[in-house]
Design a binder for these strands. Structure first.
Length: 572
DNA sequence: GCCGTTTTCGGCCCGACTGTTTTCAGTCG
């Protein structure tokens, strides 16, 4: 874990303990600071070094001092004192679904219960019976929450690419069977966060009960936790929670905005509204009783004097100020992609896959595809795709999207200075993808893409800085997307801020419905990337990889013209 | 504890839902 993440966790811990002490506003202040610190793209120590800690949203005098103490000593005396004061088991109790800080504190004060085990014993001994506020149902709820917690962790966040197929499936079912006019996913899924804690689905429907019935009957759903007049909460097999909300068409934009979040973004928005004598909630924007906006997100933002803000940017990191000045970045979007420089094909399905990939690229109107034909293994030995793939590639070079043969340079591969860097970082599979049309594997040229680097290898800022440096010296892009071998959006933002281009995997080689491409796009958008900062949104001619080799392909397709640079996509 | 394009003090998002209530408190998102 990075020191930023550790500091954020410490402040979360302080917030939890303050909650248990019954503090009213301090816990939220510490949580806000923790969220800001966690989403920081720069090392906390560097910010402190410039004496700019207080420029972090939610960090004031007191928290800045605590950050400095943390950076200096590795701990915060205030936190240590709170931990001595409050039994740690109370935090566990507070986390149980249906329980909160108030209830956990009551157990402690009124029953002397200091943790889950003692609470279980207290319930078994009947000590909760007759306590004010604890009826039969409540006691049973707590009992089952304790049992569930003992069986395993609940509320774990899952990787967005893992949730993606499930989300699409649920939305498709609602669209096709629930007579719902509009169906959209909101929450951190729509903001393309790396992980999602639950799914929020919004629908408009004349008959909410039909929507709930159809939804509840979906085979993925294991349990209906709660159903009200406008809202249903279910648990999927595997434990993921999904909230379905039915809203009126005239409220849809306001509800989508509200449930997309983030929390900090919405808090900022509402305080902006208050300053203008308006009130924002999930039903609309109101001046007194009069609804002035609500049907679309665009009109909600416009009513507050703001340009529409892409969901991926809604984290209160300056996007509201930018929108007030009409300076929202036009983010890269699906139609901007013009090719892929880094496709791997399994040797045993070739050359059939070459044709499949070429056909898919043609269907999407891509101008080029780089297929990795040879590389260097971790042990330094060279591999290459077997014949007849090479021949097939050569045949296809004359039709459709231009096929580039790419080469991956490992730590032992050329050029030597790159090998040294990869070696220094101790990378298990340090592959630099280098499309080199018409060149023999092993030819000494800088890589076009620094790929196969991500959380599995770049686990701290130092390593990421090394890859950024390598990319800069090589004029290379760095690959972003799901999985441990690609950069996440936080790292991607640092890459963009350093002026380095991103490469987005397009999933040409993957099955329909595979999340790689949309998730990579989402991460790039979260990083604030425009089409200009994405290597494979450029024409082949403007890429440094388009060197002329002895077997250079035909001229680019005539339709390889500049495409829409609109970053504004329809809600997912 | 943080924050300010009316504020350096006095606010701090707000509505749905549940369980226990007889008008509300706690939790959740």
């Amino acid at each position: 874990m990075t020191s930023n993440a550790q500091a954020a966790e410490t402040f979360q811990g302080i917030a939890d303990l303050l909650d248990l002490l019954g503090e009213k506003f301090k816990p939220e202040a510490y949580r806000r600071a923790a969220r800001s610190i966690e989403s920081l793209t720069e090392d906390l120590g560097a910010v402190a070094g410039r004496h700019e800690l207080r420029s972090i949203p939610g960090v004031g005098e007191a928290i800045a001092e605590k950050i400095e103490e943390y950076l200096r000593t590795g701990s915060i005396s205030y936190y240590e004192r709170l931990k001595r004061e409050i039994p740690p088991g109370l935090v566990e109790l507070m986390r149980l679904p249906g329980l909160g800080p108030k209830t956990a504190r009551r157990f402690w004060v009124e029953l002397g219960v200091e943790g889950p085990n003692e609470l279980r014993d207290a319930i078994a001994a009947g000590r909760l019976v007759g306590v004010k506020g604890f009826g039969e149902k409540k006691i049973e709820l707590i009992r089952s929450a304790l049992t569930a917690a003992a069986a395993g962790p609940t509320g774990v966040r899952r990787a967005i690419e893992e949730v993606y197929p499930v989300a699409r499936d649920l939305v498709e079912t609602l669209r096709s069977k629930a007579h719902a006019e509009r169906v959209e996913l909101a929450g951190s899924y729509r903001r393309a966060r790396e992980t999602v804690g639950d799914l929020d689905i919004l629908v408009t429907s004349k008959d909410p009960s039909v929507a709930f019935e159809v939804f509840s009957a979906h085979p993925l759903i294991a349990e209906v936790k709660m159903r009200g007049e406008t809202k249903e909460t279910v648990l999927l097999q595997g434990g993921l929670q999904v909230d379905l909300r039915v809203v009126q068409p005239e409220e849809f934009g306001a509800a989508l905005q509200y449930f997309t979040g983030s929390k900090d973004h919405n808090v900022r928005l509402r305080s902006l509204a208050r300053d203008r004598g308006l009130k924002v909630n999930e039903y609309g924007v109101f001046r007194g009783e009069e609804r002035v906006a609500g049907a679309t997100e665009e009109e909600v933002y416009a009513s507050l004097g703001l340009a529409w803000i892409p969901p991926e940017l809604r984290e209160n990191r300056g996007e509201i100020e930018a929108a007030a000045q009409g300076k929202v970045t036009a983010l890269v979007s699906e139609p901007d992609l013009r090719g892929d420089l880094h496709i791997h094909l399994p040797p045993d399905t070739l050359p059939r896959d070459v044709d499949r990939v070429a056909e898919e690229a043609r269907r999407r109107g891509y101008a080029y595809v780089g297929i990795v034909v040879a590389g260097v293994r971790a042990d330094g030995s060279v591999w290459a795709l077997p014949e007849p793939t090479g021949s097939r590639l050569a045949q296809l070079l004359s039709a459709g999207p231009r096929l580039l043969r790419a080469l991956e340079i490992g730590p032992e591969g050329p050029p030597p200075e790159l090998a040294a860097i990869a070696h220094d970082f101790g990378i298990a599979r340090p592959v630099l993808s280098a499309p080199t049309p018409g060149r023999d594997p092993g030819g000494p040229q800088p890589p076009a893409i620094v790929a196969h680097v991500g959380s599995s290898v770049a686990s701290d800022a130092g390593t990421l800085a090394g890859w950024v440096d390598l990319a800069r010296r090589s004029s290379a892009a760095i690959e972003v997307g799901p999985g441990p071998e690609r950069l996440d959006s936080t790292a991607a933002r640092q890459v963009c801020e350093a002026g380095i281009s991103l490469h987005l995997p397009t999933g040409l080689d993957l099955s329909t419905g595979d999340p790689t491409r949309p998730v990579a796009l989402g991460f790039a958008r979260r990083a604030g990337a425009s089409a200009n900062s994405v290597a494979n949104a450029r024409s082949l001619g403007s890429l440094s990889v388009a060197g002329s080799g002895p077997r250079a392909g035909p001229k680019e397709r005539s339709d390889d013209r500049p495409r829409s640079r609109s970053g504004k996509s329809r809600p997912a």
